[in-house]
Nucleic acid binder design. Structure first.
Lengths: 194, 194
DNA sequence: ATGTCAATTGACACGGTGTCAAGTGAATTG
DNA sequence: CAATTCACTTGACACCGTGTCAATTGACAT
């Protein structure tokens, strides 16, 4: 299932991505993807056993394309814990809009599909590690506010940075991306540093 | 559609509520509700045109039963803005677990069903007003931190108090209800007061 | 020539929502 | 008492989207 015809496979992933990004809010069906990719609906199932599989594969493809690892890793190079916190929020916060279409589709599936939920939880776990690392950096700098244990602080930061929260603030409250990143940076500083 | 046979109607609402609360995570179908309520599936459609309609009606029924208005209104009686903020977080935060089953079902529908999304947005708008009122109270007390405009503060508080965030903190991070309420109170104070 | 492999066409099953038509039984009203 | 109305029943069915199955095609390799 992994490496039959790479061309078609990546073409599918690419068009899935396009449809999810552009087609704002529109539900993307297997048939839509097939049509757009110029293949039959059934050919989709030759490459991906289920819709959940396809979406999950698309998240990995997305990361690969956008180089998310590198971008998030950059925050590790910050010298002080404080800078690191900022850098992480900046990196992740800027990444969200690029994955939002995807995220929304998977999140929607998660409520019904176990596999999708699992996949998303896994990716959020990865993100969580970044939060923990940032909080740890604060603590080794002696900058972590005494108000929170590292665990609590990580939980809170992780929750604060959720895609749902980004969605609510930018889509519903009308915040600009800059406002979002800026506000979350100061919020995090206020909450977690002395 | 509103007041044919009140008995049957409320019996439907009641069992819908039960199924959503108890049946943890289980998907509740129209057929399930009908069966549990002791009527035919079609009779459901005699009272509620669509599943979304039923769920929406159930939220109102829920509020009615739990007396959410009264509980949230209590926070208005607080003397200082600070107390009011605390009281509001306490009231809403304690209300969430009682509506969580419902909320989850509606949230899940919202991703596909326009009506459900609209209904939920409406209810969150109501909750938002409570946030705004609390922030306003802070400001008239001269206690609102200069870091945020009232609008920003309301947006942030509103987002902070979302059901999704409660879900993440209590279900995924394992916070107890007391931890949640306590932590959010201090967080809000830290963010919004001088 | 034979086999393999990606892809095609077309049909179909399943689950869940919503619709339609005809019928039943009990209470309401002339 | 008969007629009507009303809540509800049974059963069939259409629609949609996902996923499956079987038979076929056309290209490329050995």
């Amino acid at each position: 299932m992994s490496s039959e015809n790479p061309d078609t496979r990546t073409r599918i992933l690419q068009t899935t991505l396009n449809l999810l990004e552009n087609g704002q809010g529109e539900k993307v069906r297997m048939a839509d993807i097939a049509k757009q990719a110029g293949i039959s609906r059934q050919a989709l199932y030759l490459h991906f056993a289920t819709r959940a599989d396809l979406l999950i594969a698309t998240t990995f493809y997305l990361d690969e394309i956008k180089g998310s690892d590198a971008r998030l890793a950059a925050s590790r190079n910050a010298t002080s814990g404080l800078d690191r916190l900022d850098a992480y929020i900046e990196a992740w916060g800027s990444y969200i809009p690029e994955i939002y279409g995807m995220a929304k589709a998977i999140l929607a599936m998660s409520d019904t599909d176990e596999a999708a939920a699992e996949a998303w939880a896994q990716r959020m776990q990865d993100m969580r590690e970044g939060c923990e690392a940032a909080i740890d950096a604060l603590q080794t700098d002696g900058e972590l506010s005494a108000r929170h244990t590292p665990k609590q602080a990580s939980d809170l930061l992780w929750t604060l940075l959720s895609v749902r929260n980004w969605e609510q603030l930018t889509q519903e409250c009308g915040w600009s991306q800059e406002e979002y990143v800026g506000s979350l940076k100061t919020t995090a500083r206020q909450l977690f540093t002395k």
